[in-house]
Simulated scan of single mutants.
Amino acid sequence: MVKIIGKIFLILILLYILLPILSSVIFAFSTKWDTTILPEGFSIETFEKVITNPDFWLSLLHSSILSVSVIFLSVILILPAALAVELKLPQFRSFLELFSIFPYAIPPVLLALGIIQVFAPLPIPIYGTPLLLILAVTTLVLPFTYRTIDNALQATNAKQLIEAALTLGADWITIMQKILFPNILTGLQNGSLLVASLVFGEFVFANLLVGTNWITIPVWTFKVSRIDGKIGSVLAVINFVFVYILSSLLLSKGELGGIPIVSGVKRDKKKFS
């Protein structure tokens, strides 16, 4: 009886998750769907309208640049701090965890308005530029980047690996290239995928900080959906396919475990000693 109830709840949860997605996909391919239970017909006309629009490709390019820039900047900021906490300053772990969730705890609208109040009066021409958007969105993804990097460091026991490599005579460049990065690569890939998904869907910062000066996919979606709601469903399908392809490319690289890396250090013992 318990198993039957569990299966029923599982089916209900799957329907709750999948039905909106399936409805969006069907609506994107439909010709007309307003007075009937099922669409009156199917067509790819809306898809052709979207992919032949130069603004779509421009906004896609901007969102891609934003994603890559935010991923790079967040890793550059978080990785040294997470390493310092893991290796030398474990007493600051709770402080870093608390500090990293501040952007996530504060509503994005308030953060955007605060950034406008700070940067708008400055003589530096940064307000309304992509640079300000990149810096602002980076603050939003710091909690996710920190969690993925910190989990990867703890899962691979980075402290012991680095201490063992130092004992064998390895320098820090060798440690970073052959031990640390290969072992946390999977965590970095997963974090990058999560950040890319969040950045591609970020609307508040993009709309308030740059608007149509440097239009991104969410801003363009909002703009054209007021004219034709079906375009919004088409863009949702395209976004899903894009994220799926990106996920497949990242995950196809495979996971690197700690054992091959440690054995590699042992093989190079004579070289390091």
Rank of each mutant, 00 (worst) to 15 (best):
M1D: 07
V2R: 10
K3P: 02
I5Q: 12
I5M: 12
I11E: 05
I11W: 12
I11P: 02
I13K: 13
L18I: 15
P20Q: 13
I21Q: 07
S23A: 15
S24Y: 12
F27M: 13
S30F: 14
P39A: 10
E40H: 05
S43P: 11
I44C: 09
E45S: 14
E48N: 15
E48L: 07
E48Q: 13
V50A: 01
V50F: 02
N53R: 00
N53E: 12
P54H: 03
W57T: 06
L61N: 07
S67P: 09
S67M: 00
S69F: 12
V70F: 03
I71C: 07
I71K: 14
S74P: 06
I76V: 14
I76W: 07
L77N: 00
A81G: 01
A81Q: 10
L83C: 05
L83Q: 00
A84G: 04
L87E: 03
K88C: 08
F92A: 11
R93G: 09
S94G: 07
S94C: 00
E97L: 09
E97G: 06
L98R: 14
S100Q: 01
I101E: 06
F102W: 14
A105W: 05
I106Q: 13
V109T: 11
L110I: 14
L111D: 15
A112D: 09
I115T: 14
I115Y: 13
Q117C: 13
P121E: 07
I124K: 06
Y127N: 09
T129Q: 10
L140H: 09
V141D: 00
L142S: 11
L142R: 00
P143F: 00
P143C: 10
T145M: 11
Y146I: 15
T148R: 10
I149S: 03
N157G: 13
Q160L: 08
L161M: 13
E163K: 08
A164D: 12
A164H: 04
A165F: 01
L166R: 15
T167Y: 11
L168K: 12
D171M: 14
Q177I: 13
T186H: 09
G191P: 01
A196E: 02
A196R: 00
S197L: 11
V199K: 03
V199W: 08
E202H: 05
F205E: 04
F205Y: 12
L208N: 06
V210W: 04
V210L: 07
T216G: 10
I217Q: 03
P218S: 03
P218V: 01
V219K: 05
W220C: 02
K223F: 08
V224L: 02
D228K: 11
I231D: 07
S233Q: 08
L235G: 01
V237W: 04
N239W: 11
N239H: 05
F242L: 03
Y244G: 11
L246I: 09
L246M: 08
L250K: 03
K253C: 13
S263N: 08
G264N: 06
G264T: 05
K266E: 15
R267V: 09
K270N: 14
K271E: 10
F272K: 10
S273W: 05
